[in-house]
Write a protein that binds this DNA or RNA. Sequence first.
DNA 1: TATAATAGTGAATAGTGAATCACAATTCTT
DNA 2: AAGAATTGTGATTCACTATTCACTATTATA
Lengths: 200, 200
Amino acid sequence: MRAAKVETKIRREQIIEKALGLIGEEGIAALSIAGIAKRVGIVPSALYRHFRSKDAVLDAVLAFIEDRLFGNITEVRAETSSALSRLKSLLLRHARMVSEYRAIPLIVFSDGIYAGHPERKSKISAFITGYLRGIEKIIEEGKQDGSIRGDVVASTASVLFLGIILPAAVLWNVSGGNFDMDAHVKNAWPVFIRSIAPDA
Amino acid sequence: MRAAKVETKIRREQIIEKALGLIGEEGIAALSIAGIAKRVGIVPSALYRHFRSKDAVLDAVLAFIEDRLFGNITEVRAETSSALSRLKSLLLRHARMVSEYRAIPLIVFSDGIYAGHPERKSKISAFITGYLRGIEKIIEEGKQDGSIRGDVVASTASVLFLGIILPAAVLWNVSGGNFDMDAHVKNAWPVFIRSIAPDA
DNA sequence: TATAATAGTGAATAGTGAATCACAATTCTT
DNA sequence: AAGAATTGTGATTCACTATTCACTATTATA
């Protein structure tokens, strides 16, 4: 049966979405044009009506992730004003994002994706460090208003902040979704707080 | 020129070593029989004298990583007796291991490796949780002797412990080795300590 | 409604990588 | 030193993947 004719704009979104799903379920190695096309419900060659190449699909996927990542920071800043509540909200969003898009940590880790693509590698590098800077900025603001200890090194603390979610993502990943990420985040948060909060 | 004849036992070690190097430098996607063989200095087909299949190579690589991981815990327990110094030593070893074998986080993260291999996936899952239990045990001992606060949840703290090294590994990875892992560990350690140490 | 533009299809092509095999060189055993 | 065992080699097969292309169906437009 012939697939319905759908405009490129929508097909592109579907392709990105399905590519993320495929990576999340079967790993980056399993990301093939045929695999994506099948999930979208079109024939492999039809995919080329919407993307010039597989690399173009990957670039679009990266852009999608970038948007999500920075979107979180923007939204969190708009949402609340205190440093600690911003960090907590960011943590929860990040946790939700990782469980929704299991593909994200896989992609970020996967050297395979940027082997032979230096631009892509530096792009990923740039948006991870950009994300970290966003966190650092929140931490600095907390130091200013006294909700975070003055001797906390923002760059170290931001990496540790990432450290709350990353190993949880690995466990969640490896256990096939059995690890309770929300519970971990809830338990880990006060522990993290203790390491950066002023003495009581 | 024909490669020298080397006994299987040694070739197997070389193959595992070179496979790790190849993954570390070019990603799991770049792991090919031809690629490994080239690094070892033999012809692709010769590799089959030493491993039945590519999957067999991967299993051996996993076993190698497992050994290293648990070896660290054993050695650390033998080395010192206090919980905190054991944890610190473990952290340093872990950091060294990750920078020596950049492949390790890539492999652990890569779903591609165990897609369609449930045994392999559960094996990885088992040795990560086993490693975490080793850390938890050290933490529990610290709680007993009072060097770690009684209200620290060992399972949460052990995941956070991993969180010191994991994001650092990502950054190191993505930056192409530019991130100073040792410095991060040195800075992060006292912050982590503060979150689990008794009140002064 | 005729025509142009858009999106989908199946077949064909070229490249790549894992695995096999018959054969050659080297090393071990006796 | 003869024969067996081990390891290395090159050619080849097989499956799979990205990509192209001529053609067809559908939708928009004039």
